[in-house]
Computed example of a mutant assay.
Amino acid sequence: MGADENNNTENLKSLPLEDLHKAANARFGGFAGWSMPITYPLGVMKEHLHTRELAGLFDISHMQLFDVSGAGAAALLSRACPLDAASLPVGQSKYTFFLDEKAGILDDLIVTRLGEDRFMVVANAGNAAADEAHLRAVAKGYDCRIDALDRVFLAIQGPEAADVLHTAGLAGTELPFMNGFEPRPGWFMSRSGYTGEDGFEIGLPEADARELVTTLLADERVEWVGLAARDSLRLEAGLCLHGHDITPEIDPVDAGLTWAIPKPVREKAGFIGAKALLDKITKGPTRKRVGLKPDSRQPVRSDSILVDINGNAVGVVTSGGFGPSAGFPVAMGYIGKDFAPIGSHVFAEVRGNRIALHVHSLPFTPHRYHKG
């Protein structure tokens, strides 16, 4: 969900609202098979800060929504994810995963219960096809239906987001964080996001989306924000990007994400990868995902090797850049548990030079979610 940019936009899928982004003078780049707005004339720094201060509007239509319905829907999702879907109250959203048999993270997801036998699953763009194939394979034998929805997907994030939507006449601004519902036929709306700020994600038909975008941008508090600022926002918030901070080679234990797997779900062990995950929990992590702060003003980037003072490899950077709200370079990575305590010093090898860093607490900027 971040901003790995590829400027070759040939053979990439186009967003349904691409014309609106072109009219807004967006600069495009390739991400997860899509031609995406990376920045707008405001620029990454101001887009980032605008989201923290007012409300940023993001087009995240590259992500995929799956409607999972039927008498076996809850049982399917509880098998496919380390999740007790049947116990979720209607309206509740839950962060979860698809795991493989080795407990590697195939994708991270948000599942929302919409009714007795209906759930909405939001999956990452780069994994959408694989996720659909995986879910359909697991679904064999379950009485359920999986529909991949064709929707525009928008996010509005920031401290003014709720009031902007309320002013625009949208229902749902009273929702607590991590709750969702269907405000209109064909719409899905949740109070969630990927910035550390309060905000909402809205899936809706294209015609409705065009009308909504026009309404939202007429509010002076709202600005388009691109994928680059989305990446710096989520990194400051300590949120993982699949394919970088979490991958099929990384499990929830090393990633520090076991909080997302309730104890009763672990004890029942009915999900794919349960045995491997429980074994890993028993043994404990060999490495840990940590925040990293360079001691200088030079950012470090993903894939930079981390070494100790003697040059021994002790970890790797998985995400890195500058944190406009934090006011300094920020990074995340994995490091041997002996080097994981806050304040520990390591070095990143960058183009033959060593950049001194220390382990920093996550998030770099406080979360400001609406708890209701």
Results as ranks from 00 to 15, higher is better:
residue 188 F to C: 02
residue 158 G to W: 08
residue 235 L to Y: 00
residue 226 G to N: 10
residue 187 W to C: 01
residue 160 E to N: 14
residue 241 L to H: 14
residue 212 L to V: 03
residue 156 I to Y: 00
residue 192 S to G: 05
residue 198 D to S: 12
residue 189 M to T: 02
residue 160 E to Q: 15
residue 184 R to A: 15
residue 204 L to R: 00
residue 159 P to E: 00
residue 224 W to G: 06
residue 202 I to P: 00
residue 238 G to R: 06
residue 161 A to F: 09
residue 201 E to P: 01
residue 212 L to Y: 02
residue 160 E to T: 15
residue 243 G to L: 12
residue 187 W to T: 06
residue 177 F to P: 06
residue 243 G to P: 04
residue 159 P to K: 07
residue 193 G to W: 04
residue 219 D to N: 15
residue 169 G to V: 06
residue 162 A to Q: 13
residue 156 I to K: 04
residue 231 D to R: 04
residue 241 L to V: 15
residue 180 G to N: 11
residue 190 S to I: 09
residue 220 E to I: 07
residue 201 E to C: 05
residue 211 E to A: 15
residue 226 G to T: 12
residue 163 D to T: 13
residue 234 R to G: 03
residue 188 F to Q: 05
residue 166 H to C: 12
residue 200 F to P: 08
residue 173 T to Y: 08
residue 192 S to V: 11
residue 190 S to A: 15
residue 182 E to Y: 00
residue 210 R to T: 15
residue 228 A to Q: 12
residue 160 E to A: 15
residue 243 G to C: 12
residue 164 V to E: 05
residue 219 D to K: 13
residue 191 R to V: 05
residue 178 M to E: 14
residue 239 L to T: 01
residue 158 G to I: 08
residue 218 A to I: 10
residue 201 E to I: 03
residue 210 R to L: 14
residue 226 G to C: 13
residue 213 V to W: 03
residue 229 A to V: 05
residue 163 D to M: 12
residue 172 G to S: 12
residue 167 T to S: 14
residue 226 G to S: 14
residue 158 G to Y: 06
residue 228 A to F: 09
residue 222 V to K: 06
residue 198 D to G: 09
residue 164 V to M: 07
residue 236 E to N: 09
residue 238 G to F: 03
residue 196 G to L: 10
residue 172 G to T: 07
residue 214 T to Y: 04
residue 170 L to F: 03
residue 213 V to M: 06
residue 164 V to Q: 03
residue 232 S to K: 00
residue 196 G to S: 13
residue 216 L to D: 07
residue 232 S to L: 12
residue 153 F to H: 13
residue 159 P to R: 01
residue 227 L to S: 07
residue 171 A to Y: 10
residue 180 G to K: 08
residue 217 L to D: 11
residue 195 T to I: 06
residue 154 L to W: 03
residue 235 L to T: 01
residue 168 A to V: 13
residue 220 E to H: 12
